[in-house]
Amino acid sequence: MSDKVPFSEILVYLDGSESSMSACMYAILLARSTGSRLHAIYCINTKALGDLVKARIFVSQEKTEYLADLKKDAERHIRHTKKLAESRHVNLVTTVTEGSPSAEVSHYIKAHGIQLLVLGSVNMIRSRREELTSETDRMLRTSPCPVLVTRDDESVWQMFEELD
């Protein structure tokens, strides 16, 4: 049996949640131990923003304010992720994009030959209502490559701390 790792390009999806930070740490551990290249993507959900303006829930002034907030949030998380990767000597390719997160991630996977997508925890199925499906759930269902779903638990943080 071949002992070759079946991936060399890993993508981790960041959305600012704690579970996406756990996913990021796990992806750094995985990239380091397999010698894979790690990519991190943060998508500013301008699709949802546009929908809120269309539905007249947001006025255009709010859209502008939120867009600025979301961009700042994206920069903050990307900066933090870079620091985490650098601290464990892992090279990281970062991208901030805008649009519908699941569509943007799918597009990035195809465009960059990604072979493994790492996601933070997906939601428990508590409702059959399709409208309540999260972006992470959609990515799990639509990803063109294999997906690894991490758990937001202490052991990931501990393993990350223990890695030199």
Partner: peptide, 19 residues
Amino acid sequence: DNPTEHIQILSSIAKLCSS
């Protein structure tokens, strides 16, 4: 602290209310 979450919540309500 979390504008992404706020957008997601409003967006889910808007989608639900289209039914």
